[in-house]
């Protein structure tokens, strides 16, 4: 597996982590009722969206530049 492919796998795992962290923040907010966790949930989901956008951009860029290893 090339670095390019491993990077895409890594970004997928990072996105899942961000979504999981967002879900965890929502759960803690429901239990504790602390708004700071809701802010954490929003930030985590925003990070997940940013990672998805980056992942797509990276894949397209590598394809366009034809960096194949």
């Amino acid at each position: 597996m090339s670095l390019k492919a491993f990077h895409i796998v890594f970004i997928i795992f990072s996105t899942l982590l961000a979504l999981g962290t967002g879900a965890w923040c929502v759960w803690v907010d429901l239990v504790e009722g602390a708004p700071i966790y809701l802010a954490g949930a929003i930030a985590s989901i925003a990070a997940a969206i940013a990672l998805i956008i980056y992942g797509i951009w990276f894949y397209k860029k590598m394809k366009r530049l034809r960096i194949i290893t």
Binding site: M1, S2, L3, F6, H7, F10, F13, S14, L17, G20, T21, W24, T69
Partner: peptide, 24 residues
Amino acid sequence: VEVSGLFWHFVDLIWIFVFPLFYL
């Protein structure tokens, strides 16, 4: 740089599992 980058990605991937297990 590619092989060291593969190592670095692996190390970072380990942290992706460490963080939720220990912190969350």
